[in-house]
Amino acid sequence: MDRALASRYLAAVLMVCAGGCATDFDQRLEETERLRLDAAARGYEWIGTEGLLEQARERAAGGDTRAALALVEQARFQAEAALQQAERESEAWKRRVVK
């Protein structure tokens, strides 16, 4: 009896966690996709970012939310770095012009 109760409790906890993790993933994915598109609009998207997000979606669809989130974090790092590069280069390029 106690064993069955414990199993049901554990299952319930896992379901809640899975739902929470999925919500985190969706939000993080959406934010990262927005960052990627911002970098693309400025002409600074890096080559692997879109592919990482695609892989993340596939992993999430297969139920591996933890791996999916890790891929989104990699993509986010790239998108943010690309945006920093765009910001930096908006002025820095001028110093390289041959004079």
Binding site: G43, W46, Q78, E89, W93, R96, V97, V98
Partner: peptide, 17 residues
Amino acid sequence: GKQFYYSKRGQLNFACA
């Protein structure tokens, strides 16, 4: 075109120049 040529981009942070 000039700005593109002198701007660093990508993971390697390279400009054409």
